[in-house]
Design a protein around this nucleic acid. Structure first.
Length: 424
RNA sequence: GGAAAGGUGGCUGAGUGGACGAAAGCGCCCGCCUGCUAAGUGGGUAUACCAAUUGGUAUCGCGGGUUCGAAUCCCGCCCUUUCCGCCA
């Protein structure tokens, strides 16, 4: 949701920026509706003012015991009331119409975001480390997972369906180790506060983060009208929904572990092997609420927080700045971290770090005041994965595999995994 | 699942038809006073939209109804809390 004032005053700019994302917005329709809405509202306010004054007068007459005059005055209100009701119903219509139109406006890309249509136009900002050399043919993680008895895909398919792997034995332990390690790192080294959120959320929360109404088909919904979270971003961002924060609280930084549930509707046939695209996965999510003027600095530092995990684990990756056309609806600027996967032979997206500016804050009504009695402003909200475990798990196995089929555990994880090597 | 109570401003909490956007207290902000501190004292302090010069309108969980007029009465819904039962 964009600022209505921006739409009114700088529609040409909005249209141009939306076009960078490849989105045509209903500019004219909105401006027409808004014009009618405003003049209608002015009229309505006048009528209501008149009505209020009349009512007040009647009250005074009644108080003075002047019954007859009061009755006379009452008779005069009928027409006013009818007029008001007519305008009110039109107002409701317009309001609905405008909301529908507003939802078609994407968040606008930041000036530092390159033009482009799709993933081919994304910009590789930097690479860290190097692709590991193997003197043997590196295996993909699904083969390693099977031979080392870390993953059981058939069991998952039997229990739930495809896209629900079972982690077994040391695989389960490694999974848990990754989560603990990442949470500990972000909270102890990077100043995030830990949050453990609910996994089922109401529609209001999903509207706040922008997942509803547009992306309902990506979500699992329960019979109680609660939805399984697609990411911890949803509950964690909504922790402060409808609040006015104190300026000294900012920035607020949360790190949250959660399972994530995605229907992956429409993604059939893509990246189906192994852990690449599954319906339930685990992730440590980072969320920040900050002052508008600091959000791009906070964005860079959040990116660094996520990168540091990969660096500590010695995994080769690259940082990609998404072009306007590939960024999606909600973001202003977004970096992807892509980890190198030797067995698959590709870079795989393992994190997206996004600055939403006030887009989510406006939807979720998360504001702050710079000073007592001052105006309220929307905070800027950012989030990033730090990181998603399936691809971290797979990159780790593939990167640290040895010729004999065993896998070395990198140093920072050893005390969590309880061993330095996974073998048969 | 059964029963009851309740949803009012940053918080506590009054308000059962008319001058209530809302008492009081707390908190916070700006003064004054007190040679420190504490106390005292005067004022200010909800949000959104519109007009923009002091102005106007709406909002007391949400939606509808009664009424000239609703925080207040009626109906429906949602949510929270407590007790009992069941269960991790």
């Amino acid at each position: 949701m964009l600022d209505r004032k921006l739409l009114r005053e700088q529609m040409d700019f909005v249209v141009a920026q939306a076009r960078r994302k490849g989105v045509e917005v209903p500019a004219h329709e909105f401006l027409v509706a808004d014009g009618e809405f405003r003049s209608l509202k002015a009229q309505l306010d006048e009528l209501r003012k008149a009505m209020n004054e009349k009512s007040k007068a009647i009250g005074i007459l009644m108080g003075q015991g002047k019954r007859d005059e009061a009755e006379l005055a009452k008779a005069e209100t009928g027409q006013l009331k009818e007029q008001i009701q007519n305008l009110e119903s039109r107002e409701r219509e317009l309001e609905e119409h405008m909301t529908m139109l507003e939802l078609q406006f994407p968040n606008l890309p930041h000036e530092s975001v390159p033009d482009g249509k799709d993933a081919d136009d994304n910009l590789v900002v930097r690479e860290w480390g190097e692709k590991p050399d193997f003197d043997f043919e590196p295996k993909p993680h699904w083969e390693l997972g099977e031979s080392l008895k870390l993953l059981d895909f058939p069991a998952g398919a039997k229990i739930s369906g495809s896209g629900f792997p079972v982690f077994t034995g040391m695989g389960a332990r490694l999974q848990r180790a990754l989560i603990s390690y990442m949470i500990d790192f972000q909270t102890e080294e990077r100043g995030y506060s830990e949050v453990y959120p609910p996994y089922l959320v109401n529609a209001e929360s999903l509207i706040g983060t922008g997942n509803l109404p547009k992306f309902e088909e990506d979500l699992y919904k329960t019979q109680d009208n609660l939805y399984l979270i697609p990411t911890a971003e949803v509950p964690v961002t909504n922790v402060h929904r409808d609040e006015i924060l104190e300026v000294w609280q900012l920035p607020i930084k949360y790190a949250a572990y959660s399972a994530c549930f995605r229907r992956e509707a429409g993604a059939a046939g893509k990246d189906t092997r192994g852990l690449l695209r599954i319906h339930q996965f685990d992730k440590v999510e980072l969320v920040k609420f900050c002052l508008p003027e600091t959000s791009y600095d906070e964005h860079e530092s959040m990116l660094a927080d996520a990168e540091q995990v990969l660096q500590n684990l010695g995994l080769h990756y690259r940082v990609v700045l998404l072009c306007a056309g590939d960024m999606g609806e909600k973001g202003c600027k977004c970096y992807d971290l892509e980890v190198w996967s030797p067995g698959v032979g590709r870079y795989l997206e393992i994190s997206s770090v996004t600055n939403f500016e006030a887009y989510q804050a406006r939807r979720a009504r998360i504001r702050f005041k710079r000073e007592q009695g001052g105006p309220t402003e929307f905070v800027h909200i950012l989030n990033g994965s730090g990181l998603a475990t399936p691809r971290l798990f797979s990159a780790l196995l593939e990167t640290y595999q040895r010729a004999d089929g065993t896998v070395e555990i990198p140093d920072p994880l050893r005390r969590y995994v309880g061993t330095d090597c996974l073998g048969p």
